[in-house]
């Protein structure tokens, strides 16, 4: 029982970061009606840049984070331009394939620059594990969790209490009518890429820091986690993404404890596949839109 509680707590803390990856996917999808598969590699570029600077130039957490966010945003805007704005096909899958191709490009750039080796990311928190009663809390998980919660509150405020959020939701409701009432849809698309890349780069840096390292496989890892969370929560649902992230975190850590670490990803994929088949709307997704 204590194990279970400990796993659940760890799961919630890790899951909060998954939730943000899911939010990145679901917000982009809400606005674009297209999946950005190179979201993971985009924020991976940010982490590499931040880690490089803090390792070789000046070892400051704030600077590293700022670099990570800035580079993620730049790469995100490139992806938006190449894979979404320029691809004028009426088939939404065309952008998906294009984003996948850009993913290969980004991953290869990283491999060329780092020779595919592990790249250290300094654990910035320096926090050590502390105990609450019988349950211990890992310091870096806790930092990750706090960062994720702060970001989620910020995103919630942006979406539901600002003019920008109103526009995002209007475009998500119906792109055409949003355009008709004078919303610059292209601009909103760009802005949503800026937003998702920025918080993606931020949280990705914390995730990499808690692992002390980053590899070129991080892009795949982040994309897959985000996708799973989005499907679990329901495509387009903001609270769903949060719930999905927590759920995935908890299930993964229980699985690691009770079944074995090598089954962690297998369980995650099985869960995704199961949801796709049994409940494609996810936990909190809306039903089919009437046409």
């Amino acid at each position: 029982m204590l194990d279970f509680a400990q796993n659940t707590l760890d799961g919630i803390m890790v899951g909060a970061s998954y939730a943000l990856l899911g939010l990145g996917f679901t917000l982009t999808f809400g606005v674009m009606r297209r999946l950005n598969l190179s979201y993971g590699p985009t924020i991976m570029m940010g982490v590499y840049a931040g880690a490089y600077v803090s390792l070789n130039v000046y070892g400051s957490l704030l600077l590293a984070l700022a670099i990570a966010v800035a580079v993620s945003v730049i790469v995100g805007l490139v992806i938006e331009g190449v894979c979404f704005r320029a691809v004028q096909s009426d088939n939404p899958l065309a952008s998906m394939v294009s984003a996948f191709a850009m993913w290969m490009v980004l991953e290869e750039i990283i491999i060329l620059l780092t020779w595919g080796r592990l790249f250290p990311v300094q654990n910035p928190s320096g926090l050590s594990t502390f105990d609450i009663g019988p349950i211990s809390v890992r310091g870096d998980y806790f930092a990750l969790f706090v960062a994720a919660v702060v970001l989620m509150v910020g995103i919630y405020w942006l979406l539901f209490h600002t003019a920008f959020g109103r526009k995002v939701r209007a475009v998500g409701e119906n792109r055409k009518s949003a355009q008709l009432v004078g919303i610059d849809v292209n601009r909103v698309s760009r802005e949503i890429f800026v937003l998702t890349s920025a918080f993606g780069g931020f949280v990705a840096f914390f995730i990499a820091a808690s692992l002390h390292q980053i590899t070129p496989g991080f892009g795949l890892w982040a994309t897959v986690k985000g996708l799973i969370v989005m499907i679990l929560g329901g495509i387009g649902s903001v609270p769903g993404a949060v719930l999905g992230g927590l759920l995935l975190g908890i299930i993964e850590l229980q699985a690691v404890w009770y079944i074995g670490a090598s089954y962690r990803d297998l369980i995650a994929f099985a869960l995704l596949f199961l949801f796709l088949v049994v409940r494609p709307r996810g936990l909190l997704g809306q039903g089919e839109r009437s046409s």
Binding site: L35, M96, L266, F269
Partner: peptide, 28 residues
């Protein structure tokens, strides 16, 4: 048969999930 009724986007994701699932089966 399980995924086509959901439409193209879900099918694309499902194929990705299934392929990774199968790859992890080989790993295990």
């Amino acid at each position: 048969a399980l995924t086509f009724r959901l439409g193209g986007l879900y099918f694309a994701i499902a194929t990705l999930a299934f392929a990774e699932l199968i790859r992890l089966v080989w790993v295990n």
